[in-house]
Amino acid sequence: MTDLFTASTLPPTGATTAASRSRSGNGRDRKAARRRKLRRQVRTLLVLVITLAAVAGAGWFVFRETDLFGFVSPLESKDFPGPGGEQVQVEIAPGAPGEAMGQALYDAGVVASVGAFVEAYEANPNAQLIQAGTHVMLTEMRAADAVALLAKNEKVELKLTIPEGYTVAQVVDRAVEVTGLDRAAFDAALADPASIGLPAEAGGKAEGWLAPSTYYVVPNDTPASLLSQMVQQTVGSLTQRGVPQDQWQAVLTKASLVEREAKFPQDRPKMARAIENRLERGMTLDIDASTAYGLGKPGTELTYEDNHDANNPYALYVHLGLPPTPIANPGSSALDAVLNPEPGDWVFWVAVNLDTGETKFAETIQQHNKNVEELRAWQAANGG
């Protein structure tokens, strides 16, 4: 057997042929080339990663600092130098967090950014005092000044106070005077009971259902919304007192009579009892205030003929029972008197002093006539 690698075919020990040197050199070059290529690829990848990171960071900055149309974003904490320009009204919603307040102010041109407002809001301990409502602000305010002004709660509010015993006509007069809203719009709302939430028990008439109270009027209020608040407060009062719904109108009617007849709170429970006693005995109520309401004239100007005019459904000297509707809008004390009348057998009452309104109650006609004599004496001493 012949060894393929005989001495004649092997190079001398320690020697390298030109061909072998060439092959060895080429191998080293290829390896070096691969290493250089790898280093270039790594550098390229690093550059790409850094570039992408820079682009992403720039994109986030652009997203934060500009909106889709290229304007400065409200998220940027830019601030106006102040002190402010023209007045504007800003509505702060109930329970609004600082970000929502800032957005409302930014939209109105009050602050330069939501971010600046939120920072100022979080830095001001009085910010938690800010109340919902319409606030008067200035355009281009410093965020810190805007927070401080909001915390003062100098809101745009009109106070509409409706006294106890006002009629619907008087309520509308007062509302038009205070708010400047159109009277025709009030009339239109009253003519549309559904628009003010008037219950079916009212029979389409708002008399007695416009609760006396103080109402805070904001710029977006309308006659219908104001009247609706009054109706809802009355419904709430009746519901809270546990009055069955089928008795709502009767209770309001009785309370309106008490409201207009009794001058002092301590007289109202007695008055309510006297009215109940007369109704139970089938007696006419003989209430001047009802006659006056039906005729649209002051009670002090009534005549005997007025009180006995059968054409007036509110003339309770000739018509048994309650009048067709309440004659005024009663307050809470009149409602409570009707629901909790004072125990007693009174069926008569008369004001014996027309200046002070002092009223005396009687169980019998004899007692009543004596009280009437006292009234006549006062009239004689005071010019009739």
Rank of each mutant, 00 (worst) to 15 (best):
T2A: 15
D3A: 10
T6Q: 14
A7G: 12
P11K: 11
T13R: 14
T17D: 03
R23N: 07
R23H: 11
N26H: 14
N26K: 15
K31F: 15
L38R: 14
V47W: 06
V47R: 13
V49Q: 06
D67H: 11
L68F: 15
L68C: 14
F69N: 15
G70R: 03
L75A: 15
S77K: 12
P81N: 02
P83S: 10
I92H: 10
G95R: 06
A96N: 05
P97F: 07
G98E: 06
E99N: 15
Q103G: 13
D107A: 13
G115T: 08
G115F: 02
E119A: 12
Y121E: 05
Y121W: 09
P125S: 11
A127L: 10
L129N: 15
Q131A: 14
A143T: 04
L150I: 12
L150M: 11
E164N: 10
V171P: 03
V172I: 10
A175R: 01
D182T: 08
D182Y: 12
L190K: 00
P193G: 04
I196D: 02
I196K: 06
G197R: 12
P199H: 04
A202E: 05
K205V: 14
E207H: 02
G208E: 06
W209H: 09
A211K: 08
Y215G: 06
V217C: 05
V218C: 13
N220D: 13
S225T: 07
V231Y: 01
T234K: 09
V235A: 04
L238D: 01
Q247E: 08
E259R: 00
F264N: 06
R273Y: 08
A274R: 00
I275Q: 02
E280M: 11
G282T: 04
T284A: 12
L285V: 02
D288V: 01
Y293E: 02
L295W: 00
T303H: 08
T303K: 10
N307M: 11
A310Y: 07
N312F: 02
P313T: 01
L320R: 14
P324F: 02
P326W: 05
G331N: 06
G344C: 00
F348H: 00
A351H: 00
V352A: 02
N353K: 05
N353V: 01
E363D: 04
I365N: 15
I365T: 13
V372H: 04
L375H: 03
R376Q: 08
A380C: 11
